[in-house]
Simulated assay, not measured.
Amino acid sequence: MAKIGERVALTVLREAPPGVFLDGGEELGEVLLPRREFPPVWEIGGQVRVFLYTDSEDRPIATCKRPKAMPGDFAYLECVATSGVGAFVNWGLQKDLLVPFREQKERMEVGKSYVVHVYVDPESDRVVASRRLNRYLSQEPPNYAEGEEVDLILFGKTDLGYKAIINAKHSGVLFENEVHRRLRAGEETKGYIVQVRKDGKIDLSLYPPGRARIDDLEAQIEDELIKRGGFWDLCDSSSPEEINKALGVSKKAFKQATGALYRRKRITIGKDGIKLIGSEPEEWRPE
């Protein structure tokens, strides 16, 4: 049964001046696919795959386009208009997506982007969005393993660090003193579970734990050395800021990785930089 907010394959019933009408079943009836939305190939009696939402008069309407976010998704979308009923964000379709006033934590401003949750309002049967994200996070106890890789969407900043949505289900915190690169609101990135506390709160990291994190960094350093012809003027005497700008990690992590590479006889370490063994330039003077 076809429902608002879903992508479904519907049968083309008939053509009319505004477009073609699709069979939406008993609940939706005939659904208009506007002429501007036609797929490259279609025929009466054939099927087209469409996304179902409602027009400005709350009538079911179809599009062959896929919105930037489906119901159930969290997404970072730009506010493009406001009105007496709320704000509207661009989700990639002809009709912008409404964020009702009741679903806003603060009044949204045109030109700014916000993390929202997209859902079908059960009362109006319209696809809408909400800024009250916690309402739409899972209430089930989190069941993540330490070190597990997860998908994150960053949505807030606190005194402790950065708040992130985990796998579109839970929220957690990236502690600021563990973040070694600039983060932006709405950024989607991979992260790792540090721990799930007894109270259900989740600590996160941008880096794989323990040995895995250093292994990744070692590979990154080796790749960069190859690109640079075997020498890089980054070393133990470089400032934490220089190291963070170059690799996005702390100086401690950098020293752990270069120390491991040195012990494996992959690099030599000098006062002026690090050198990939086997491609020593003439001016290099190893310590």
Rank of each mutant, 00 (worst) to 15 (best):
N244R: 14
D215E: 15
K275N: 14
L154M: 03
L10Y: 01
R102P: 02
T63K: 11
D223T: 11
V48Y: 10
Y76M: 06
R263L: 14
L160C: 03
Q104V: 05
L152P: 02
Q94I: 12
E149C: 05
R7C: 03
L22T: 01
V196L: 06
N143M: 10
S238H: 05
W42R: 02
R59W: 09
K265F: 11
Y76S: 05
P67E: 09
S130G: 02
G84R: 09
K105W: 07
K68Q: 12
E282K: 12
G92W: 00
S237H: 14
I214C: 03
E15D: 04
V150L: 07
Y76A: 10
L133P: 06
E103K: 07
G72R: 05
K169G: 07
Q256T: 04
L10E: 02
Y207M: 05
A69T: 06
G111Q: 00
Q220C: 07
C79T: 13
R213Q: 14
W232H: 08
E149G: 02
Y119G: 07
W284V: 01
R266K: 15
G19Y: 04
E149N: 07
V89C: 08
E241F: 06
L33V: 03
P209A: 09
D23N: 10
I277S: 01
W232S: 14
I193N: 10
I277A: 05
K265G: 00
R107N: 13
G92V: 01
G210L: 06
R49Q: 14
P17L: 02
V115S: 04
V31R: 01
I166W: 04
E140S: 12
E15C: 01
P60I: 00
I153H: 05
D151Q: 15
E106V: 12
T268E: 14
G147M: 06
F231P: 03
E140F: 09
K265I: 00
R228T: 09
C79W: 06
T11I: 08
E178H: 11
V150R: 08
L183M: 02
D199I: 06
G72W: 07
E146R: 11
E146N: 13
V99P: 09
F101C: 05
D55F: 09
L276N: 04
R107C: 06
V150E: 08
I166Y: 08
C235I: 10
A129G: 11
A260T: 08
A219D: 15
Y144C: 00
A260L: 11
Y262M: 11
Q94H: 13
E103C: 06
V50A: 10
E106K: 13
M108Q: 08
I243K: 04
L276M: 11
A69P: 10
S124A: 05
Y136K: 02
D216G: 15
T82F: 00
D159N: 12
D96R: 12
P67N: 08
Q220S: 13
A81N: 14
I153D: 10
G92Q: 01
F74R: 04
A87C: 08
K190F: 10
V12T: 05
D96A: 13
A81F: 12
G25V: 01
E287P: 15
F254P: 01
D233L: 06
T158N: 10
A257G: 02
G186R: 05
L152T: 01
R107E: 15
P100K: 09
E109W: 03
R181Y: 03
Y119W: 10
K163W: 11
I193A: 08
V173S: 03
A16G: 05
S237W: 11
K169Q: 11
I193F: 00
I214T: 11
E27C: 01
